[in-house]
Amino acid sequence: MSGDEGPRAEDPRGILYPTRLPTFRRVPAPPGLEGLIRWFWIPRWRMAPGRTSRQELLPFPASNLVVQAEGVTLSGPSTRASFRDLRGTGWAVGALLRPAGVVQWHPEPGALRDAEVPFDAPDLHAAVVLAMTHDGGAPSHERATSAFSRWAAGRLAAPDEAGRLANAMEEVIAAGRQITRVEHVAAQLDTSVRGIQRLARSHVGLPPLAIIRRYRLQEAAQRLRTDPAVRIADVAADLGYADQAHLSRDFRTVLGLTPRDYRGGS
């Protein structure tokens, strides 16, 4: 399966309240890196003095390498919704990592679960800061992603066999609404359930069922946000939930609110 079948940079999933975002861009990884980085994401903000903007996210089940003015961090896969409070003026340049990419920077993605740790990359930091703050030439987001891409290309190897299979696992789950069980993934990839479980642990850091549920929950949130007429029970049925109660339970567990409350606040 090719990388084109997974999430693309214009994919709206993951952002719970898009209208609250500051300036925000997603830029696809360039050729040669698409098997290692899904896309770059670049928010910029300028808040009035004393104002705070809370950005609420339902992150993709993946890790991110993020450059900000104060340094570089590697964040692992999350098990819950997250938020960042934006104040003053700032920016970030993040890379959403593919399963084949994250293991080249951290051998145990599961150890990063729900965590963000410093990442020693002074040359990456210097190049991206210069790109984001230098005035003139190409737009800052283009300069920054080009600098990030050059740095990554010089340090990452092409995916190995396990990395390619882990990427395919991600793509199958992300693209298929009908995927609701680990057995479905194993059947599509012609491998065992145990093999999928090992891949998910070693290359994502989450159980495969958690990855499946995160993508389905992202899709549910997107539909509830964009289609005011759709019934919550129909969304649950379309995404393989046993009933509306099971979808509501996932919403409460991960987002801390019901589907109805989320729709009302979007």
Rank of each mutant, 00 (worst) to 15 (best):
V93K: 04
T145G: 04
G35N: 11
E5N: 12
A221Y: 00
P107T: 05
A131E: 07
D11M: 09
P43A: 00
D250P: 04
G32P: 07
D243K: 08
V103S: 03
L130P: 09
G137T: 10
G176R: 09
V204F: 00
T19H: 13
G163K: 00
A237T: 14
I232D: 13
D238V: 12
L239G: 00
P12I: 03
L97F: 03
D135I: 15
D123G: 14
A126I: 08
A166N: 01
F119W: 12
L156P: 02
H106F: 13
Q218S: 05
F119D: 04
A157R: 13
P30L: 03
A127C: 09
F83S: 15
R38K: 15
L199I: 05
L189C: 05
F24R: 04
R213L: 07
A62Y: 10
R155Y: 06
A115M: 11
S202L: 14
H125I: 07
F24A: 06
T79P: 05
I196F: 08
V193H: 01
P107K: 02
A126L: 09
P18D: 05
P159Q: 08
P259N: 06
D261Q: 14
P49R: 05
R113H: 07
V93L: 06
P12W: 02
V193M: 01
R38M: 14
W41Y: 15
Q104C: 08
P207C: 00
R44T: 12
S63I: 10
T52N: 12
G265H: 11
I173M: 07
I173S: 02
A158V: 06
A166W: 03
L209P: 04
M132S: 08
A81H: 07
Q68V: 15
R177P: 14
E170W: 15
P22I: 04
P7D: 09
G256E: 03
V93A: 06
A48N: 11
V103M: 08
R181E: 09
P30N: 01
A187S: 12
H203K: 07
Q218L: 06
G256P: 11
L74I: 06
D190I: 11
R54A: 09
P18S: 04
I173W: 01
